Amino acid sequence: MICGIVDLGSNTIRLSIYHWEGQDFRLLLNKKTMAGLAGYVQGGVLSDSGILVACRTLSSYRALLDNFQVSKMHVFATASLRNISNTGEAVETIRDVTGIPVEVLSGDAEAALSFKGAVLPGGVSTGLLADIGGGSFELVSYEDMSITSACSLPVGSLSLYTRFVNGLFPTPEERKAMRAYVEEQLDRARTAGVRRSRLCGVGGTIRALNKLSVDVFHKPPESRSMTAEELRELYKLLKKDGRDTLRQILHAAPDRVHTLVPGLVILNTVIKAYGVEQVTASASGVREGYLMDRVMKL
């Protein structure tokens, strides 16, 4: 069978088309729209303009699937609709305008689905999972392939940028404020006190950081592993805030030029707090977990 899974995120809206049969699946097509819905939130309310952006994107994805004669499209939202005060209104408007229902995942559900999609298909047996999105990040501690604790924190690469940064790159004072805020959020996490040497990283921010790591440290293109020291070196590079830094980011991850530093602040704060030594950028995550759990019923 073939179906489309849409992740309605705070920074990006992604469509993934999968072919699945029994317990096996493979990705056929992946399409991304940099919608930046978090930028349309004012006073906790997603504006009509933001809702319209979501409607237009979902309608274009529905038309694309129709062209491929794919009838099944499943749409879920994360912090983009979860962390606003007008969630019900937004979901209802999207359904009325497009005819498309949207499932809004709780933070715990998102964390569990990210774990199912990224770690269970052959990841290390004990470690941390960090899913850094545009509007939130999910942190899961697991041992022997079983979750021991999990939480969702209302801070992501785009929301952190929107809240603290006035220019393209954050100033030293803005970086300090972002780091303090992330540390404050981590203090509330149910994984506090856990020490893990390995971290599985999920989401566009970590994939972009891995591309930058490959570029900066001249690693093989297929490499998906980064050491804590490499990530500290990347942070030092990005702090320089000059033309060379901008050129480096534009070469590796042009669509994340403004959110890469905030995302790295989150990741490096997690690394320091939990004693992480190595990070693996997962090629799969919450969409695959959603497919396995909600569609394939595994």
Rank of each mutant, 00 (worst) to 15 (best):
W20T: 01
F25A: 06
L186E: 03
F164N: 03
L37H: 01
A54H: 00
R188G: 12
G285N: 00
Y40W: 08
G9Q: 06
G156C: 09
A208E: 05
E173F: 08
H251W: 09
T148S: 05
K176F: 14
Q69E: 13
A283W: 15
D24H: 11
Q69P: 02
D187W: 15
L81Y: 02
V70A: 02
M145C: 15
R175W: 12
G39F: 05
T259E: 08
K236W: 15
F137K: 01
M292N: 03
R196W: 08
A118K: 03
R82H: 08
L264P: 05
Q69L: 13
V97G: 01
T12M: 01
L64F: 05
E222D: 11
R287V: 04
M34F: 14
L46M: 07
E92S: 11
G133F: 01
S125K: 13
A63S: 11
V91A: 05
R188V: 13
L113F: 04
R188D: 12
E103R: 07
L29A: 14
G285F: 03
R196Q: 09
L128I: 09
H251C: 06
E89S: 12
I84Y: 02
Q185L: 14
V75A: 04
V140Y: 00
W20Y: 12
L29Y: 07
T162V: 15
P154M: 09
R243T: 10
H218W: 15
M226Q: 04
S49A: 10
S49L: 11
P220S: 03
V257M: 04
D131Q: 04
D96H: 14
A192E: 13
L160Y: 08
S225G: 12
L52E: 10
E230D: 11
G285K: 00
A283D: 14
V97D: 02
D24E: 13
L15H: 03
S85A: 15
L234S: 07
A192T: 13
K211M: 12
T171G: 07
E229K: 14
M145R: 12
A77P: 00
G22F: 06
Q23F: 11
V41C: 05
S80H: 00
L81W: 00
G4R: 02
A54R: 02
K176Q: 14
G127S: 08
S16C: 13
A90R: 00
N30T: 11
F68V: 08
G44C: 05
F76L: 01
T191F: 07
P154Y: 06
F137I: 06
K176Y: 14
H258E: 15
A189D: 10
G117P: 02
S85L: 12
T126V: 05
E222F: 11
